[in-house]
Structures are given as C-alpha cells and as structure tokens.
Design a binder for these strands. Structure first.
Length: 464
DNA sequence: TACTTCGGCGCC
DNA sequence: AAAGGGCGCCGAAGTA
C-alpha cells in the first residue's frame, strides 16, 4: 500500500518530535581539546602566512595593490595569477576562478601554501570555532530541520552536524576527535548501505539493478571500473573501483554525462596512480587497447575514435541502453508524466509540484524517500529506547545514518534494536520497498574519529 | 553600517 | 535536448 498524504504528515509530525529529543540530548564535546585545537590551528595559519608574506609573489602583489593588498581577496589573487601568465577559468559573473581544483594544476609553491592556509582557515572558522560557539555546558545541540529542503530531506544547522569533515583525514581527525561519548558510553554510527541506489530501484524496478542489490557476489562499481578502464574483472583495483563509483556510476545516476565523466575519470588515472592489478600503469594499458588520449568535446560531432571521450561515450550508451534499459525507460516515463501533470509523487506520501529541471524530477523522489527510511527508523528506535528505559541516546542523524551515544552495557541491545528496525521492521512498514536493506555499524570508544567497523564477532565491549 | 550576493567548500 | 541531486557556513565583494 502506497502511503497517503496523511501518512506523510504523520511521519513529519513524529519525526519533528523525535528530532527535538535528539537536539535536547546533544552530543558531548571535549572542550579543552577543542580549545587547544583552535589555538594550535591559529598558530599554524600564522606560520603559513609568515612564509607567504616573505615570498616574491607577495612582493609583486604589494607592488600592484599597494596598501589595499589582501591575501584573502580572491579577486586580487585571480588578477595576480593571470598577470603571471596562468590561464584560469571564469565564474558565471566573469571573475577569475580561484578554487582549489583550478589552482591545484598550477603546481606553484606559493599556491600550494596558499591552499594549505585556506584549508586550515576553513577548519578553524567553520568547524572548530563554529562548534565552540554553540557548546553549552560541554554539550552540542545541533538543530535538525524537516521543513526546509525541496526534496523533503532534512537539514541541520547551528552548527550543521551533517557536513563535518571526514574524507580529508588530517582535518577530519582534528575536529572529530573533539566529539566524545558520555562517561561509560560509546559513540555508535549505523549507516544504511547504498540507500539511494536501493530506493531508486523501488521506483524504476530495473531487474539488473535489483540483481546487483540482491546478489552479494555482484558488484556494479567493479563492473563499471572494468568497462571504463578496459580491464578484466580481476584487474580492477580498489582505487580504480573507487573512481568508477564516484566519477562514473553516481554521476550517471544523478544525471551527468560522458562529457563530464570522461575528463574526471581521466584525471583520476594520474591522481590515484591507477594501474592494473599486475602493475601496468592505466594509461599504458589503455593505449595498448586503442585509447590514446583524452580527446576533446565538440558540440557538433562525436569525439574522435581512439579517444577516452569516445570510449566513455560508448560506455555510457551501453550503461543505459543495454545494462539498465528499464531504469532508462522509467526516467523517460517519469519525466513525461511530470510534464503532463505538473508534479510527481514520492513513495512516502508527498507530492512535489512546480517548475523543475529534468534531473531534479528524476532525483528528488529518490532523495526524499531514502531519507524517510532513515527518519522512520530513527523514530522507532527512539520509541523503543524510551519504552525499555534504556540510558542510550540518539544524538544525531546524517541523511542515511544514525549516531547514538550508547551506554556500554546496552551496546549489544542497541545494535540489535537498530539493525532489526532498519533492515526488518521498515520493510514490514512499507511494502513499496522491494529490495533488501542493509546497514554498516561503526563504534567509537574514545571519540567520533577513531570509530571502528563493528562485526558480530567483535565483542570486546560486551566482554565486561 | 547593515544587508545581500557570490564563490568556495564541507557533508550525504 | 541537456548534460551532477540536496544542504549550511564562511569571508569577500557588492549595494544601499
């Protein structure tokens, strides 16, 4: 049975109350450590600044901008770089682009330190002092909104709990080590695996996609790495799989195309030092297989034979027309139905009307419904925590994951509860979920950085 | 001075 | 035919 508008209302009503409790719980902060981090990061920024001020590039800068010189001015930076012969892209308003990706290719010592300084400034302003500002009596109480996002996802602010660094280990470690469990507790994060892909299958019903989800021996990202880089399955490495996933599969699902994917996959070869399992560098391997260069984009003809552009165009064509034709047809039908009716319905009981781009119409229903799986689970888990009189508390949520501060002796209980709710009870609640759901668990004993993957035989906590 | 917009960047 | 979805926060730039 498909949820009604009233069901949708109830979900947000209950969700609102549940998240208010999450906000009230709050997450414990190691305040002295956070203060030290602010101090030390500030010193590191000063050191880099001093180094930059001594450079020749800065001398020229001062010649040009005199006492108006400001190293933090992207306009001045762009002007200086162009004066020294760098070719940089422009923003939509015509300013010179000075973002990290554009600058990284310049390979200049000043630019390198400049980017390092910017990275630390982001850490210090947004994350370290941004968190510090909101701490009350050693606890942080981020706000979780259900009324702001066009897709019916949540958002978070004051501070935003949903965008704390994690991918850059240097920065991620510094901030996340400041998030700590209460005494005799551990931080537990339970994530849905590949939730949006699974929910998309509930809309498009593509048999091949469902097969990938159901069969643990199949691996879509490995298969696409093989195609993108012309490898045999057993020549795909962890790294080439990683780039195929993030530079081809996900972008394709979000509506990107070969003209963007190909340059990114090509860049990844150098960036990730990609090679075959046997150690043959990928560019060499590609050229042995008839792909000699990236090639270029041209609006009025196909990319040239023998280019990576042409190759990825073929891979994309095959991806949608041969591998996932049902998904492809769903996108077409879904878009046409939107054009006819002026809106579309989400599987969790919501309707979205108004003017939207094609990619939005395809992506919104998936993003919204995926989050609602998380929200329903969070509501249930919290209900049961209260009913059982447990000491453990849910302290945050990040779109497809739940973070809880779990009392040590309740750890096994909590994990059973979370797993049961997220992978079993939810499927009973919504029969439109036609694929299995799975979760990954991480437990942080000291803080939110050094969390470790938890498996059922990893019971060092339940020993006591 | 106070406000909005822009570019940039962190996450899913 | 077009061509990467969704947020919040920061400092600089722009405007009144």
């Amino acid at each position: 049975m498909i949820p009604t508008r009233k069901d949708g209302y109830k979900l947000l009503h209950d969700g609102c109350i549940a998240l208010a409790e999450v906000e009230a719980n709050g997450i414990r902060i190691d305040v002295p450590r956070l203060e030290r981090r602010i101090q030390r990061t500030g010193e590191q920024i000063k050191e880099l600044e001093a180094k930059l001020f001594k450079s020749n590039f800065w001398k020229e800068w001062k010649t040009k901008f005199k006492n108006r010189s400001n190293m933090n001015s992207p306009v001045q930076m762009g002007s200086m770089l162009e004066a020294s012969g760098c070719e940089l892209d422009k923003t939509k308003t015509g300013r010179t682009k000075t973002d990290a990706v554009s600058l990284a290719k310049l390979d200049d010592p000043f630019v390198k330190d400049f980017l390092a300084k910017k990275k630390l400034e982001k850490l210090k302003s947004t994350y370290l002092t941004g968190v510090m500002r909101e701490v009350v009596d050693g606890f942080l109480h981020p706000v979780f909104n259900l009324h702001l996002v066009s897709t019916y996802r949540s958002s978070s602010d004051s501070p935003n709990f949903q965008n704390l660094p994690i991918r850059d280990p240097e920065v991620g470690k510094i901030i996340r080590e400041c998030f700590i469990p209460r005494d005799k507790h551990v931080l537990v994060e339970v994530d849905y695996s590949a939730l949006e892909v699974r929910i998309s299958a509930c809309y498009n019903d593509d048999p091949t996609l469902i097969e990938y989800i159901q069969d643990p021996t199949k691996d879509m990202h490995r298969d696409m790495a093989a195609e993108c880089y012309l490898l045999d399955q057993d020549q795909v490495t962890k790294t080439s799989r990683f780039y195929a996933k993030n530079q081809f599969v996900f972008p394709q699902f979000y509506g990107s195309y070969w003209g963007l994917c190909a340059p990114n996959l090509w860049k990844a070869i150098d960036e990730g030092d990609l090679a075959t399992v046997d150690g043959v560098p990928l560019k060499e391997h590609l050229s042995d297989n008839g792909v000699y260069e990236l090639g270029s984009y041209n609006s009025d003809e196909r990319p040239k034979q023998g280019t990576f552009m042409r190759h990825i165009q073929n891979v994309e064509d095959n991806f949608w027309n041969e591998r996932f034709p049902v998904y492809q047809q769903w996108k077409k039908d879904w878009w046409e139905q939107y054009l006819e009716t002026g809106g579309f319905d989400i599987l969790t009981g919501f309707r979205i009307d108004g003017v939207h781009k094609r990619n939005d119409v395809i992506n919104y229903p998936v993003q919204g419904a995926a989050f609602h799986c998380l929200l329903w689970s969070l509501i249930q888990i919290q209900k049961r925590i209260r009913k059982r009189g447990m000491k453990s508390k849910i302290v945050g949520q990040i779109h497809d994951s739940i973070i809880a501060d779990v009392y040590l002796s309740e750890l096994q209980d909590y994990l059973n509860l979370a797993k049961q709710t997220m992978t079993k009870d939810l499927l009973d609640h919504w029969d439109w979920i036609i694929v299995p759901l799975d979760v990954e668990v991480e437990v942080g004993e000291e803080n939110w950085w050094n969390k470790k993957e938890w498996t059922s035989d990893n019971d060092i906590w339940s020993r006591n």
